[in-house]
């Protein structure tokens, strides 16, 4: 079902008969839409191919040494040859990022709900959430490394702290922006606190929360990398950031590029995932997820 479906999308006063009349498919916009979707895939792909070609050409034409700029081919080779090391590092980074994101979602939403239920709690907690957010995470990381049992836990805590705030502040904002008339309506119908939260405040906060989720997803990955740099983890349990640094020390630039590639792919994946979740949840009703039709 798309918002374009004329069966329930008729945005004008229509008698049942004319609704059925409109039910025939409208080929022109559909075809346009399909080609539009195709172009959105083709153009970036062509662009990517051109850039890689340019890169390959530059490296061979100017004879650039591979420890300065490896050819795309060497990067691909390194990706395959070093896959055992890289994949386990990728797994560590993915695990930390998603665990941090999950904790941030649970903690951020939970705390936002508590804060909007009680003014006291808000006054007591919010300033500290802000302080935690505005202090650069790289500056707190060394302390956290000292207190945390393992480096991985330290990295997880750092990523959590960074991802937590956008979820908290967006959800709080969303919970507070409920339409006052709807609140009056709920009061008039004798809704309990819990009912008001469940049927009114949470759905109203959803778009805000999802915007926070998109930001938090990106930040969790960035923080996981930065924290690993700062914590200086080593050994079997290290993530992509450590492999990246290690490759630099050893002047294994193809592997550095391969690690970098994996990191950006992870970032893209997280972005795509959070955007898809957001679109799925909002597509029927929120302006942000609906194509303009006028």
């Amino acid at each position: 079902m798309t918002a374009l479906d004329p069966a329930n999308g008729a945005a004008k006063e229509a008698s049942p008969a004319s609704v059925q009349h409109n039910d025939t498919p409208q080929p022109v916009p559909r075809a346009e839409e399909a080609s539009d979707r195709l172009m959105r895939l083709i153009i970036p792909a062509v662009m990517l191919g051109l850039l890689v070609l340019l890169w390959a050409w530059y490296v061979s034409a100017y004879d650039v040494p591979h420890y300065i700029l490896p050819s795309p081919w060497r990067v691909a080779q390194s990706l395959v040859n070093d896959w055992p090391t890289l994949s386990s590092a990728l797994l560590v980074t993915l695990k930390i990022t998603f665990m941090a994101l999950g904790l941030a979602l649970a903690g951020g939403v939970g705390l936002a709900i508590i804060m909007t239920q009680s003014r006291w709690v808000e006054l007591a907690i919010y300033p500290y959430a802000v302080i935690l957010q505005v202090t650069p995470i790289v500056a707190i990381a060394p302390l956290i490394v000292i207190y945390a049992p393992t480096t991985q836990v330290a990295v997880l805590i750092c990523a959590f702290i960074v991802a937590f705030f956008p979820v908290l502040s967006n959800t709080t904002q969303g919970l507070k922006s409920t339409d006052h008339n709807l609140l009056n309506l709920f009061e008039m119908y004798g809704a309990s606190r819990w009912q008001t939260l469940r049927y009114l405040k949470l759905p109203a906060a959803l778009p805000y929360f999802l915007a926070g989720l998109k930001i938090a997803g990106g930040l969790a990955l960035i923080a996981a990398v930065v924290a690993e740099f700062a914590a200086g983890s080593a050994g079997a349990n290290s993530g992509l950031a450590y492999r990246l640094l290690e490759s630099q020390f050893r002047l294994n630039i193809p592997r550095l590029f391969a690690a970098l590639l994996l990191l950006s792919l992870t970032g893209v994946l997280i972005f795509a995932l959070t955007s898809a979740v957001s679109h799925l949840l909002l597509r029927r009703w929120h302006e942000s997820a609906i194509r303009r039709e006028n």
Partner: peptide, 8 residues
């Protein structure tokens, strides 16, 4: 105003 829940 109609005061409807837009998500419903």
């Amino acid at each position: 105003e109609p005061t409807l829940m837009p998500w419903a």
